[in-house]
């Protein structure tokens, strides 16, 4: 069944209006038209919708939503925000900025500090270690622990100078 309002999209929202307990009229709309008509959609607690709740507020301006699809799997950011699942590992690269903001909300962080696969190699381990130290340095400076900060700064310099050590 097509949406009665736009006659284009499949009708997924079915509304029966009641006036003084009497059935008045049935409407079959697509989600977009239903929203326009001001029909309150039935609240479901699906995780993806919960996630969309997180995603939505930062895009008060729809222009900000990344438009370009991932060249590898073809998914767009708006498809992702509908289904709550990404299409391939490359999406994390393609939507990096937007995802970072989302992850900061969900996990209060957008930087992995856990396990590193040995395969990923020494270089990843080092860049992670470097970032850890830089974070520690920022904390040390913020808390005015200058002695500690100096130590960390030396460690950073050493790591940069001698990456294989």
């Amino acid at each position: 069944m097509l949406c009665q309002a736009c006659n284009q999209n499949p009708a997924t929202v079915h509304v029966t209006q009641m006036v003084k307990g009497q059935q008045k009229e049935e409407m079959h709309l697509c989600e977009a038209c239903a929203k326009q008509e001001g029909v309150a959609l039935k609240p479901t607690l699906s995780f993806s919708e919960l996630l969309s709740g997180f995603i939505a507020p930062q895009f008060a301006d729809p222009q900000q939503v990344p438009k370009k699809p991932c060249p590898n799997c073809g998914i767009t950011y708006s498809i992702f925000s509908d289904i709550g699942r990404l299409g391939c590992p490359n999406d994390y690269e393609v939507f990096q900025r937007t995802l970072s903001a989302l992850l900061d909300k969900v996990h209060r962080s957008s930087q992995h500090v856990g396990k590193i696969p040995t395969r990923a190699g020494q270089s990843v381990a080092q860049s992670v270690r470097l970032r850890e130290l830089e974070e520690q340095l920022r904390t040390a400076v913020r808390t005015e622990s200058y002695e500690l900060a100096a130590q960390i700064r030396d460690q950073i310099a050493e790591l940069k100078e001698n990456p294989d050590g």
Partner: peptide, 13 residues
């Protein structure tokens, strides 16, 4: 795996 986001999963959670 990415050095920024760690092990990459279908759902960001």
């Amino acid at each position: 795996f990415s050095s920024k986001f760690g092990y990459l999963t279908a759902c960001p959670t």
